[in-house]
């Protein structure tokens, strides 16, 4: 598995004090928190930072981690040493996590690296934590807790609706009372028009705590796998639409793929690269249908024949212009 350099992830030197580590965490958490961050991969980075902080803020874990040195030479895979962890006691459930309220902020999957070294402890996987509790909250409810899980489906599942087989890792309670992970495969109807980040509410499929008679719900957060044509954003879809230079400059009617079939789109004369043309109602079929935006990409025809080269030269002569004028050259 890949070695994780937690010091590099947090941008602190190996000799950093606990206070320096904490300051670094605060800055990075603010920068990458998915609810407020505009950075690419914010969520992945946030989890990575959370995991690094989880290790570096705990004197025991940090000491154990420091023993590993700076990891294997590049290209070599990492394996925990055979006597790993001997002499250390890693606190598990109930341990205060990175969040200021004492909860594991990287509620999703910890990396394989982290798991192999520090075990599962009380960190709920793919599971939103209740505040104030690490691991499994023992609050009394009149029904079982709701389960949360993230699933990735193909975009067609939302465009057309359909049933998909989804495999979840679900925390459960073993007989000895310790938390463990179980695999669970469900056949789920994906509602037509569902957007990324929305949840499918499966009544009664949530966890049943020991002693509870009524199960909570299972809330599946939907995410989409990358699609060859469309980029979903909310209920809208974005499509990069290549056009020839004359189509953009002079205007044209061009075929465009849409989820509902190919349509003819009028490109206005004088269009520029990056222009967005809206096809109303051709986005995700949500309650209120989204739109499809065709983003123009001007593509140059190759100058691979005498006539093409002649045409290019004629064009250069006929319409001289300086594309670099804004650079002052």
């Amino acid at each position: 598995m890949d070695f994780k350099d937690y010091y590099a992830i947090m941008g602190v030197p190996r000799e950093a004090t606990a206070e320096q580590v904490k300051q670094a965490y605060r800055k990075l958490a603010r920068k990458y928190h998915p609810d407020v961050s505009k950075e690419k991969d914010a969520e992945a980075r946030f989890k990575e930072v959370g995991e690094a902080y989880e290790v570096l803020r705990d004197p025991e874990k940090r000491a154990a981690y420091d023993q590993l040195g700076s990891g294997p030479p590049p290209g070599q895979s990492f394996r925990p040493p055979p006597d790993w962890g001997s002499g250390f006691e890693f606190r598990g459930a109930g341990h205060a996590g990175p969040g200021e309220n004492g909860n594991a902020a990287f509620g999703g999957d910890a990396s394989e690296f982290f798991e192999s070294l520090f075990g599962r402890g009380g960190f709920g996987r793919g599971f939103e934590q209740g505040a104030g509790h690490g691991g499994f909250g023992r609050t009394r409810r009149d029904r079982g807790e709701d389960h949360h899980a993230r699933v990735t489906v193909d975009l067609e599942a939302s465009l057309e609706g359909g049933t998909r087989a989804l495999t979840l890792s679900v925390p459960a309670m073993a007989e000895d009372g310790r938390p463990q992970l179980r695999q669970r495969t469900l056949n789920v109807r994906i509602p037509r028009g569902i957007q990324a980040g929305q949840h499918i509410r499966l009544a009664g499929q949530g966890q049943t705590l020991p002693g509870e008679s009524k199960a909570g719900d299972l809330l599946l957060e939907v995410g989409f796998a990358p699609h060859p044509l469309y980029r979903p954003e909310g209920r809208d879809l974005y499509l990069d639409l290549p056009v020839a230079p004359w189509e953009a400059a002079l205007g044209a009617s061009v075929p465009v793929p849409t989820p509902g079939g190919t349509v003819e789109l009028k490109i206005p004369a004088g269009s520029r690269a990056g222009s967005r043309l809206r096809l109303r109602g051709r986005g995700l079929p949500a309650k209120e249908a989204g739109d499809l935006y065709a983003v123009l990409q001007v593509v140059l025809p190759p100058a691979d024949s005498d006539s093409a080269r002649a045409a290019y030269s004629a064009f250069a002569e006929a319409a001289p212009f300086n594309p670099r004028s804004s650079l002052g050259v």
Binding site: E128, Q129, G130, A131, G132, G137, T139, R141, D142, R143, E145, D146, H148, T163, A165, T185, L186, N187, V188, R189, P191, I194, Q195, Q198, H199, I200, R201, L202, A203, Q205, G216, D217, L219, K287
Partner: peptide, 30 residues
């Protein structure tokens, strides 16, 4: 495996406080 289906949570018209607590996995106090 019989297919499970359910509504889109975000399109639900209204939520009781108990539901909000359950979904957010927090105590009513919060």
């Amino acid at each position: 495996n019989p297919a499970l289906s359910g509504p889109i949570l975000e399109e639900q018209d209204e939520f009781s406080i108990t539901e909000i607590c359950s979904i957010c996995a927090v105590e009513e106090r919060q």
